[in-house]
Computed example of a mutant assay.
Amino acid sequence: METIKQQQQLILLQLQRIQSSGADCAEVPNLSDLGFPVSSLEHLARVEGRIAAQSDLKNKLITFFGLSGGMTTKETVWRVLAKALANDVAKKIKWQAGF
Rank of each mutant, 00 (worst) to 15 (best):
K60N: 09
K94R: 13
D33N: 05
V89C: 07
I4A: 15
K83L: 00
T3S: 14
G22D: 11
K58P: 09
M1D: 15
K58F: 13
R79G: 01
V89N: 07
H43G: 04
P29K: 02
I11D: 05
E2C: 03
L10V: 06
L44C: 09
K5N: 13
W78K: 14
R50L: 06
A52H: 05
L31P: 12
G22P: 06
I62M: 11
F36W: 09
D33T: 04
L67T: 10
V38W: 01
F64S: 05
L31W: 07
T76V: 08
F36L: 12
F36T: 05
A82Q: 12
A53D: 03
V89H: 03
L31E: 06
T3G: 02
L44S: 04
S55Q: 10
G49W: 08
T76R: 10
A90I: 02
Q54V: 06
K60V: 06
V38E: 03
D24F: 09
A90P: 00
K83R: 07
Q9C: 09
N87D: 15
A26S: 12
L67M: 15
F99E: 11
L12T: 11
I11R: 09
S40R: 04
R79V: 07
Q9M: 14
G98T: 06
A53I: 02
K92L: 13
V38M: 05
S20C: 01
Q6M: 11
L10K: 14
G70W: 02
L12Q: 06
L61R: 06
S68M: 03
E27P: 00
F64T: 05
K92Q: 15
I11C: 04
L10R: 14
T76Y: 01
I93A: 08
V28W: 00
L15F: 10
L81F: 09
T76Q: 05
K92F: 00
E27M: 11
R46P: 00
L81E: 12
A97I: 09
K60F: 02
M1L: 15
A84M: 14
K83Y: 01
S40D: 00
D33H: 05
M71R: 08
V47A: 03
S20W: 06
A23S: 13
M1Y: 13
K58C: 10
L15V: 00
Q14M: 08
Q96V: 10
A45N: 04
D33C: 01
A82L: 04
G66R: 11
Q6H: 12
N59H: 14
T73M: 11
M1Q: 14
V28H: 01
Q7D: 15
A84I: 04
R17W: 10
L13C: 12
V47D: 00
A26Y: 05
D88C: 09
W78L: 14
A26K: 08
A84N: 02
P29C: 02
L57S: 00
E48F: 01
Q16A: 06
S39V: 09
I18P: 03
R50D: 01
K58A: 13
G70R: 02
G98K: 05
A84R: 07
S68C: 10
N30G: 00
A84H: 04
F99R: 12
S20L: 14
D56I: 01
Q19A: 15
K58D: 06
G69D: 05
E48P: 01
I93K: 08
S39K: 13
L41R: 07
L44T: 01
Q54H: 11
Q96H: 13
A86L: 08
F64E: 04
G35P: 04
V47S: 01
K5L: 14
E2M: 11
